[in-house]
Amino acid sequence: MPAGEEGRRGVPLSDRQRLNWLRLIRSDNVGPATFRDLINHFGSAETAIEQLPELSRRGGSARSIRVASVEEAERELEAAEKFGAVFIGIGEPDYPPALRRIDGAPPLLAAIGDLALATRAAVGIVGSRNASVSGAKMAARMARELGTAGYVIVSGFARGIDAAAHRASLESGTIAALAGGLDQPYPPENKELYKGICAGNGLAISEMPMGWEPRARDFPRRNRLIAGIGLGLVVIEAAQRSGSLITARRAADFGRLVFAVPGSPLDPRAAGANGLLKDGAILTTESRDVIDALAPSSRFFGDDEPLFEEPDSDGNDPFAEPRDDDRTRVIEALGPSPAETDDIIRHTGVAAQTVYLVLLELDLAGRLHRHPGGMVSLAFETD
């Protein structure tokens, strides 16, 4: 039995903190990394919200930044409550422990269903939407056997392999990561499956607002949730260019084990999984391959995941504006190629806290791109 089912660590948010966290993450140009930097610098979401317009102006924004209002956040909280969902903060006990470890973990997750599933050790299963009969059968068998071994199955609620894995693991525990809002599950043919998940036989999660209809660019964000929640990822039938391979790359970036089920070289649906095997993925023909490989990491699951919470007191002085020459040196050090923040600090000789604040200003002004691994680059305007 995987470890971690007992150990729920974290500090609950107050109602006021939850409201302000939602306002902050729903404001313009505030992504997960920016959210974390703002909290670390200003000490609370409430203080950070007050500073957003000034930070954006200092970063060179040509227009006023949109800050989510109290009324907007209250409406979203009310809509979630009416739907039967809750918002879980990254430092709270019900937040998935493995997800806390990834770069750019969402500060808030909307969730509906059995919250206890979020804190158990999980394995991702993904694959082709246009699955073959044998592929769907393999996904179902793998999901059932991993569930019997104590793992929760996490997938992306797509048709094909995802749906087969969810259905087979409803009794043992399944987590569906959605690309849209919890009230906008996609695709529509999985409606009955979604009812079963929401009724408490599973758990559905999303970082998108209630009412949000999923778009193409939302699915890669969804994929990182699957990769981050699971201790490992099993790929069954994936084409050369597919979301499953994006999920596999993210899982590898997060230090997760990637498993691939081989398929016929004549079936284009197997080309992606076979390619993963050539690149070093673990050859998988039965659930025991996954269980044995994950045993060491499962033993220590959840023991040392980092917690994130608002400090007891405010952080740095929110009104300590960087000097113009410091800001200039940081901006000149940036370019279109991603750079590590530590390298920028060494190159410019500017104090670390000042560099982080300048990067926040640029980010909120829409002039900074953030990349995996904490790297940043300057966003150049095009004519």
Rank of each mutant, 00 (worst) to 15 (best):
L117K: 12
A163V: 02
L99P: 05
V126G: 06
G84R: 07
V86T: 15
F83T: 08
E145T: 12
T148M: 11
I161T: 09
A73L: 13
A121Q: 05
V133A: 02
T148W: 09
S155P: 11
F87T: 02
G147V: 11
A98G: 06
A136P: 02
R100V: 04
E78W: 02
G84L: 11
D94F: 08
G127F: 08
G113F: 00
L108K: 13
A110P: 10
D114K: 14
R129M: 10
A163S: 14
Y95L: 01
K137T: 11
L77H: 10
V126D: 03
P106S: 07
A79C: 09
R100I: 03
I90W: 05
G147I: 07
E92N: 00
I125V: 15
E76Y: 05
R101A: 07
G135M: 04
V126I: 14
F157N: 13
I112R: 15
E74Y: 04
M138D: 02
D94N: 14
S132L: 03
P107L: 03
S128R: 11
R167K: 14
P106K: 02
A139K: 01
E74R: 15
A118I: 05
I153R: 01
R75E: 15
Y151G: 07
Y95C: 03
R129E: 01
A105M: 05
Y151F: 15
S132V: 01
R167W: 04
G127Y: 03
R101H: 03
G84S: 08
A131R: 00
S134V: 02
M138F: 11
V86Y: 01
D103N: 09
A79Y: 04
G124Y: 10
S128D: 12
Y95D: 07
G104W: 11
E71L: 14
A164V: 06
L99R: 02
P107E: 06
R159M: 11
A168T: 03
A79L: 13
K137Y: 09
I90Q: 07
I90E: 06
R167S: 14
G91Q: 08
E81I: 00
R141E: 15
M142Y: 02
A122E: 07
R141K: 12
I90F: 11
M142A: 09
S132N: 03
D162Q: 12
S134K: 00
F87P: 04
L99C: 03
A139D: 00
G124D: 08
R144Y: 10
Y151S: 05
H166I: 13
A118W: 08
G150E: 03
A149F: 07
A168W: 03
I88L: 14
D94Q: 09
A111T: 12
D103T: 08
S132M: 00
L108V: 06
A163Q: 15
A80V: 12
A136R: 15
L99Y: 02
A80K: 05
E81A: 13
L109K: 08
A164S: 12
Y95G: 00
E81P: 01
A98Y: 12
G135S: 10
G147S: 12
I88M: 08
A110Y: 10
P106G: 03
L146Q: 05
A143M: 04
A139C: 06
E74G: 05
L117Q: 14
